[in-house]
């Protein structure tokens, strides 16, 4: 199933929004799969995560799609719900054709409490559809992803997390092309950056 998704996305990427001629699909995807990740691609990391469905997940699986990515935790009472809402708002601002292709990814800081099952429950509460990927990881994996994104975080005495408020836009190669810091504004810029990267 994953292969199919990748297949379609590769084709879309290579030829823009147009429907690709059937005969060229295979060649395109073979080339993509063989090519190493670019020097700035986050997908070079070898850490892996687990989806809220309990499936192992490498970030490289997102290759070929523009990505809106944030780190959060489900019991966060203030910033994280706003970040998720802002990601939804970014989605609404994307032009049709790109909106459907973008991936929305949430990775939890809370390695102890945000189990795949807890993330699945959160997906239900927030009504996040299949375009959203919710990830659980080991302390090691979460620390490394935070380092790659430039996110600073720390667990407080009561188990909650203090953290940077950061929404990151990745291009289809997995390179950071834009980051929205803080909680105020900047959604138009984020959407524009993603749309531009998706067209290139």
């Amino acid at each position: 199933m994953k292969t199919t998704a990748l297949f379609l996305l590769c084709a879309t990427l290579a030829l823009g929004a147009e429907t690709p001629p059937a005969g060229k699909k295979d060649a395109c995807c073979a080339a993509m799969a063989a090519a190493p990740f670019s020097a700035a691609s986050l997908y070079q990391t070898d850490v892996t995560f687990t989806t809220d469905a309990g499936q192992p997940f490498a970030l490289g699986a997102l290759r070929g799609r523009p990505v809106v990515l944030a780190m959060f935790f489900t019991s966060c009472g203030y910033a994280c719900p706003l970040i998720v809402s802002d990601m939804q708002a970014i989605r609404e601002k994307l032009p049709a054709g790109i909106r459907e292709r973008a991936a929305f990814v949430l990775v939890s800081f809370d390695t102890a409490r945000d189990t795949p099952a807890a993330l699945a429950a959160y997906r239900g509460q927030r009504g996040l559809d299949a375009q959203w990927t919710l990830l659980h990881g080991s302390n090691d994996a979460v620390r490394e992803l935070a380092a790659l994104l430039g996110v600073k975080y720390k667990q407080e005495a009561d188990g909650a997390f203090s953290h940077s408020n950061l929404i990151t836009i990745l291009n289809p190669q997995g390179e950071i092309i834009h980051q929205r810091t803080g909680l105020q504004g900047g959604l138009d810029e984020a959407a524009a950056a993603l749309a531009a990267a998706a067209r290139n």
Binding site: A79, R143, A146, A147, V151, K152, Y153, K154, N165, L183
Partner: peptide, 16 residues
């Protein structure tokens, strides 16, 4: 290992 906690002090409501 957790060098990137250094700046965080508990206020997660904005980077300023």
């Amino acid at each position: 290992d957790d060098f990137n906690t250094a700046m965080v002090t508990g206020e997660s409501r904005g980077d300023t």
